[in-house]
């Protein structure tokens, strides 16, 4: 039940966020569904691996790759989908609780929350970068194949 609410809220949040980015029509709805997918993957990965950090890494990768595929499908720049779909992974809660611990001078909570927020940010960054690099590599392979194909044809 809690998971369901979180997934629906993630979808809603992403959809409304996409409105700030002036997205419209089918792309707007797709972005909302993408946000739901991102958080579903994150919850599932947390459940399977038992680590929120690994879950963040995996879901950031899945979300970035999904965004790349969606961008191809809608023939639009990748940024259009990457930015809204990853929104649910921003550790806003961590930022708030870290800051709140400082105000309350609770240094133990500050250390643990601060550390986990920074780690989550790093995992998110690593996931996005890994997906982006893999995409570049695949593009490179396709280009190489096309070139060798052309060369072979010109030899015939």
């Amino acid at each position: 039940m809690k998971a369901l609410i979180e997934i629906l809220a993630a979808g809603g949040g992403t959809l409304f966020f996409a409105i700030f980015y002036n997205m419209r029509g089918k792309k707007l709805v797709t972005a909302g569904l993408g946000g739901m997918l991102t958080w579903s993957v994150c919850l599932l990965a947390t459940d399977l691996t038992g680590s929120q950090y690994i879950a963040y890494l995996v879901s950031a990768m899945v979300a970035s790759i999904t965004a790349e595929i969606l961008a191809r499908f809608f023939k639009t720049p990748t940024t259009t989908f990457v930015v809204p779909i990853l929104i649910p992974l921003i550790p806003g809660g961590g930022l708030f609780y870290t800051m709140s611990a400082v105000v309350q001078r609770d240094w133990i909570t500050f250390a643990s929350k601060g550390q986990s927020t920074i780690f989550l940010f790093c995992m998110l960054a690593a996931g996005i970068m890994a997906a982006s690099s893999v995409k570049k590599m695949i593009e490179g392979i396709i280009r190489l194949q096309r070139q060798t194909g052309l060369e072979r044809r010109s030899h015939d």
């Binding site: 949040g13 990457v82 960054a125 570049k136």
Partner: peptide, 27 residues
Amino acid sequence: YGKIIIGNIMLLISGAAFFNSLRDIIT
């Protein structure tokens, strides 16, 4: 109040700048 504040500060955090910066760095 924590939950209310978190919901609102999510609107202010610049996700677009953050995600784009990472993609710029990797390229």
